[in-house]
């Protein structure tokens, strides 16, 4: 594409990358704390992953193999768009759809099903970085509450849920406490993916471009969803009316997060792996057997 002519490797100028790199190191050093940074405008809309993109562009170099996921899929429009922009502005890097092959993964809304390794870094795109925003609109006051590790207002909100619905109603973006202090917003991943952050072997970075924050969960860190002793944290339930775990209609897997949709021919509900690379791999393994 001719639009690439004259742009620096990684699109941003080197000073912008340096600032992000300094911010990332502080984010890793203070697990779960949202480090403010100046956040450059990217040529795609705020909310389309510009925070994650700025992280990826500041991290990536020749020799890296990048995977970009949106909704678990490498082929969704936004994933394709981000990947081709990175390929265009970072000549010499490799891209892949395989979790195994990738050493750098940028994702929106999912953490891959396959456990990540020590040599991998995953970058999550974040629309709302602060879990306290639902109980406290002022950032000034939120920063003090975070510093003090004071999450009483959030716990009251969870408690009110239980009183009203007999269940915690937070479906995704489940507030999670990192290393016993900061509570973070893990980005809009389903509850299903929250336990994957606990003692993850891979570094997890979070970038919120519009809200201008970067935060991190270092490898081998505690990541505990906020709960009460008598109301356990529950991941999404994929059992049918007979309490049988639904399988993926494509690969048969019974241990993955499923997308639900309506079959256009017979109008019935169909369930399928949300993580397309995982689904393909299950199919391939069955082929080998």
């Amino acid at each position: 594409m001719s639009a690439s002519v004259g742009y620096n490797f990684g699109f941003m100028d080197e000073y912008a990358k340096k600032e992000i790199r300094r911010t990332v190191l502080k984010a890793v050093a203070i697990p779960g704390y949202q480090v403010p940074y100046s956040s450059r405008e990217m040529p795609m809309g705020r909310g389309f992953g510009t925070g994650g993109l700025q992280l990826t562009l500041s991290l990536i170099g020749v020799g890296d193999n990048l995977k970009v996921i949106d909704q678990g899929s490498d082929d969704s429009v936004n994933a394709v768009n981000l990947r081709s922009f990175i390929e265009m502005t970072c000549p010499g890097i490799d891209t892949t759809t395989s979790v195994d092959e990738a050493n750098l993964i940028q994702s929106r809304h999912r953490i891959p099903e396959k456990p990540l390794r020590d040599d991998q870094v995953i970058v999550m795109q974040v629309p709302y970085p602060d879990p306290l925003v639902i109980v406290e609109p002022s950032e000034d006051r939120r920063k003090i509450q975070h510093g003090e590790g004071n999450y009483s207002k959030l716990l009251v909100k969870l408690y009110e849920d239980i009183v009203q619905f007999d269940e915690i109603t937070i479906s995704h973006r489940y507030p999670t406490c990192i290393n016993n202090h900061y509570v973070l917003d893990p980005s809009p991943i389903p509850r299903w993916d929250v336990p994957k952050m606990h003692q993850s072997r891979a570094l997890i970075l979070f970038g919120a471009g519009r809200e201008k924050k970067i935060y991190a969960v270092p490898p081998y860190s505690k990541a505990e969803p906020l709960v009460f002793d008598d109301v356990p944290f529950r991941i999404e339930d994929f059992r049918d009316e007979h309490s049988v775990r639904r399988p993926c209609a494509r690969c048969g897997c019974t241990s993955s997060f499923l997308d639900e949709f309506i079959d256009s021919e017979n109008g019935e509900k169909v369930y399928q792996c949300s993580d397309s690379d995982w689904c393909d791999e299950q199919l391939a393994q069955q082929g080998e057997c």
């Binding site: 190191l25 890793v28 050093a29 500041s58 991290l59 170099g61 570094l203 270092p218």
Partner: peptide, 19 residues
């Protein structure tokens, strides 16, 4: 050189991530 600084940053990121 920017490309060397990118590599050096990744070294520092590993160092800070894995004390």
């Amino acid at each position: 050189q920017p490309d060397k600084q990118q590599q050096m940053f990744r070294v520092l990121l590993e160092a800070m991530s894995r004390p």
